[in-house]
Amino acid sequence: GAKVLACPLNSCPVSPSDRSTQQVWDAFSQCFSPAVRDVVEFSRSIPGFHTLSQDDQIRLLKSGTFQVLMVRFCSLFDAKQRTVTFLNGQTYPLASLRALGMGALLDAMFDFSEKLSMLGLESDEVSLFMAVVLVSADRSGISNMAAVDKLQDDLINTLRSLLVQRRPNDAEIFPKLLLRLPDLRTLNSLHSEKLLSFRID
């Protein structure tokens, strides 16, 4: 009867069996809500993001929050040790989380984290990449597509310029980084499936 919510933002991957699903979900909510609020705070630091309508900001944040968090918390996935460190500091071997049914999603998360960390980005480059990730999220329901397109172009150009300026001899880093965007989309879909499979009775 134990409830499994093996998200690194949760305090523990498995909850005691005497807790109701609603209690487990409420406890998890206390863990992920601050992270979501941090993404909203981050969005306010993105040049031009505030010029979008509030509804469009909300739509992009709804679509892109998981992907931004995935980039932000990449370091929780230790590819060498094959461990995941939860935000409460506890570290779990991949094998034990896999046994909880988190295999495919975690494998994809490890793969993404490894590829991103191999690029050796500076923190300001990661921030700019997260901004690109957010404005590249699914645009269902966006009212001013042209404004989002323009913002996306501006941010991608800024990112490219920064990388070219800092690494004039590494022409591959920018295309390699952009290739991580479809990876994040795939991760987002896998993550959504997991979320939908956790139902509150």
């Binding site: 909510s29 979501v36 609020r37």
Partner: peptide, 27 residues
């Protein structure tokens, strides 16, 4: 729940965070 974002109550958290930031801005 048919939508993961709804499942998480994501819109509510985002909306409150965005609105809160507006409310806290000085006139």
């Amino acid at each position: 729940f048919s939508d993961p974002a709804s499942n998480l109550g994501l819109e509510d958290i985002i909306r409150k965070a965005l609105m809160g930031s507006v409310d806290e801005r000085p006139e």
